Amino acid sequence: FAESLYAERGVEWLIGAHVEKVEEGKLTYELLDGSKGEEEFDFSMLIPPFAGVGLKAYDKAGEDITSTIFAPNGFMKVDANYNAGAYENWKAADWPRTYQNPSYSNMFAAGIAFAPPHLISKPMSSPNGTPINPTPPRTGMPAGIIGKAVAHSVTSLMQDGANAHIHEASMAEMGAACVASAGKGLTTGTAAAMTVFPVVPDFQTYPGTGRDTDYTFGEIGLAGHWIKHILHYMFIHKAQLKPGWTLIPE
């Protein structure tokens, strides 16, 4: 339905494209088939590649341990398999479960802070060798679930020490929902409601698609708008820690 929304509003779109150069009022792009084109604009927003902030880490002796704590992309290393290699070797089990640094058990990285073992989707590139990959976000519902698991783990470490229970929340075993507004109105509002399970495809459990098709779908309509509207107030209620906030899911 995304293409329908664009078409209904007279918006043209390009997918599978890599921005090669940005100039005043114009950008040059390359498509997956290797062809190139230009797009003129009055206003644009370019989202850069996802990366950490480039922190440096040192131990008590002053030795640089940055490579032990962080991956080359700047995100923190956790209990993921960073040696999976080629796409054909990727498995759902590569993804972290506890988000705990393997070298320092008191360090965790939740949400967008952890270094993923590899891309979620199959890597793609143009005939010119330009990588053009989709980048699913790790924000929203997955980040909330991961954050909750990490918070429980930290609490247990503080209270139980060596007997602590480290909680798990693998993105290859969790589902996620998203509601995207497409227009407001008491009776005319619309929103797209989507669910995906699991977030990271598991082709061993779900051959072909990597996901459970009974729980991976989307619809658009007035019901989605009201869900979005209700969730807006529920999340504010939860953020303010008002009575019953623990009953509201991430």
Rank of each mutant, 00 (worst) to 15 (best):
K91M: 08
P72W: 01
G111W: 07
T190M: 06
H237V: 03
E219G: 15
G189P: 06
H225L: 14
M107R: 00
F114E: 01
I248M: 06
K238I: 03
E3M: 11
Y6F: 14
A113K: 02
K36R: 12
G183C: 10
I69P: 01
S125H: 07
Q240G: 11
P201N: 07
F203S: 09
D59S: 03
E8F: 13
E39T: 13
I230Y: 03
A143V: 06
D33A: 01
D94P: 05
P134R: 11
Y6I: 03
E8V: 12
P136D: 13
G10F: 01
I112P: 12
F235S: 07
T213L: 14
L241E: 15
T66H: 10
D79S: 06
V53C: 12
T66M: 12
P249I: 04
A180I: 09
N106I: 05
E173T: 03
A109W: 03
W95N: 00
K242A: 10
E8C: 15
A162L: 14
Y58M: 04
P207K: 14
N133I: 04
S4K: 09
V154L: 13
V22W: 01
T155E: 13
V150G: 02
K238S: 07
P96A: 01
H232Y: 14
L31V: 15
R97L: 07
G37T: 08
G185N: 00
N133V: 05
G52H: 02
F41A: 12
P131L: 03
H165W: 11
G52Y: 00
N81I: 01
S181V: 12
R138H: 09
A86M: 06
I220S: 10
R211A: 05
T155N: 12
V19M: 10
Y58K: 09
G85I: 02
T139K: 06
S35Q: 11
R211T: 05
G34S: 12
T216N: 11
G16Y: 04
H18I: 00
D33F: 00
K77Q: 02
K26H: 05
W90K: 08
P137V: 10
S121G: 04
M45F: 15
A61T: 09
S35L: 09
F1T: 11
L14Q: 04
E40D: 13
L222T: 05
A164T: 00
A71T: 06
A193N: 03
N89Y: 05
